[in-house]
Amino acid sequence: MELTPDHPVKPVILVVDDTPDNLLLMANLLKDSYTVKAANNGDKALKIANDSPPPDLILLDIMMPGMNGHEVARGLELGAADYITKPISPPVVLARVRTQLKVKDAAEFLRDKNDYLEQEVLRRMRELGAIQDVTIHAMASLAETRDNETGNHIRRTQHYVRVLAEHLREHPRFRRFLDDDTIKLLFKSAPLHDIGKIGIPDRILLKPGRFTPEEFEIMKTHTTLGRDAIAHAEQQLGMDVDFLRLAKEIAHSHQEKWDGSGYPEGLAGDAIPISARLMAVADVYDALISRRVYKEGMPHEQAVQIILDGRGAHFDPDICDAFQACLPLFQQIAARFADSDQDMARQAAAIAHNTPAA
């Protein structure tokens, strides 16, 4: 660090030499521009060098009794950046010192700049994650206001999906897909599985009983409506948004069945996106155990048996096996986000008045 208006304190130079005349010579040469510290042996040099703050530059004699210059440099875990031969030339010494201090200043500037950039990248990543969360939450909340199911269904199913994904992350069929980032996106995207219901008329969406065949055909369109709503949001941005890719898959394909008898496209087996296959198990299980104003929730054991009976027909067999292995966690999630009497009252009011729940 050179003496400049930005650096009013003189840079500190440590001179290490076992010859007093050499120490005096260097001190007189450097004292006008630098603060000079001196050490006549390696032990003393290490002690001074390890003080806080350390010197900005060390001029180190190699041939010294006891601990020589090479040993001192290893002790400092640094290494030489330049050398000066004896007898010294004052102009050469001053030029080399200035050069090395400039190199040190540049290195420190770049290190500080890199630290700043790393912190800025982390800040931007946190900001992007927050934007993703807010976007998905806003879209999911919009769907929630149109559905007679409670927001707890959304929360339960996203936790079910994460549990299944984490259980399957090392499975040979899924490990290439289920990395940390994808599992996080699955958790974020799962609440959008029924966003297409915003396009279903109230007379069908809020109907407490069974649908007529015509009504069911209209209800089935919620999968395509959901995918298209998310795709439309991307078009408004003028780009594909990676974090919405899984949301589109889940919204469009979570009603597909392993044997090809589902909708909207009748996909079968591995043609169904993994994200949608995970969502299918989570969604059906929760629909079975959840109480509604027009039905009681099914006992856990009965719901589990229906899921297992659908292994290889409705559901991916390996995901069914993961579901069975994770049953205690599913029960914990169901209990944690159980529907309250207040939730049921809002559903009843929405159905009675044929208006969205508040």
Rank of each mutant, 00 (worst) to 15 (best):
R277M: 02
F109S: 12
G42F: 03
H254V: 13
D343S: 08
K44W: 05
A231Q: 10
R311W: 06
S89I: 06
D283T: 07
M63K: 13
L128I: 14
L46G: 03
A268R: 12
A338L: 09
S33I: 11
D105A: 15
Y285P: 04
V72H: 02
S89E: 14
A348P: 02
S275Q: 09
K248T: 04
I230T: 00
E234I: 01
P317W: 10
G196N: 04
T182K: 13
R346C: 02
N22G: 03
N354D: 05
K44T: 08
M1Q: 11
N114P: 06
P87R: 01
L186V: 05
R123S: 11
A233Q: 06
K102H: 12
R311G: 05
R169C: 13
I58C: 09
V72L: 02
D286C: 11
W258Y: 15
D18E: 10
P53I: 00
T212P: 07
L57R: 01
E215M: 11
Y116S: 13
G69P: 08
T4S: 14
K248M: 13
S33W: 10
I289K: 00
N68M: 02
Q347K: 06
A38G: 08
E108Q: 15
I198G: 01
H252S: 00
Q347M: 14
D32A: 12
T221S: 13
V9K: 14
I274M: 10
Y83G: 05
R311E: 14
P91L: 00
D270M: 10
R169L: 07
G75P: 11
K197Y: 03
P213A: 05
E296L: 10
R245G: 08
V281A: 09
L46H: 04
H193G: 12
E301M: 02
G266N: 03
D112R: 14
D316L: 00
H254S: 11
T4G: 07
G260F: 05
R146D: 01
Q302R: 13
T157K: 07
P264N: 06
A287I: 09
K248H: 00
T182Y: 15
A335L: 11
P172G: 02
M67R: 12
D32Y: 09
Y294W: 15
D286K: 09
H300G: 07
F211A: 08
R74A: 13
D316R: 09
K86T: 03
A280I: 00
A325R: 15
K295T: 12
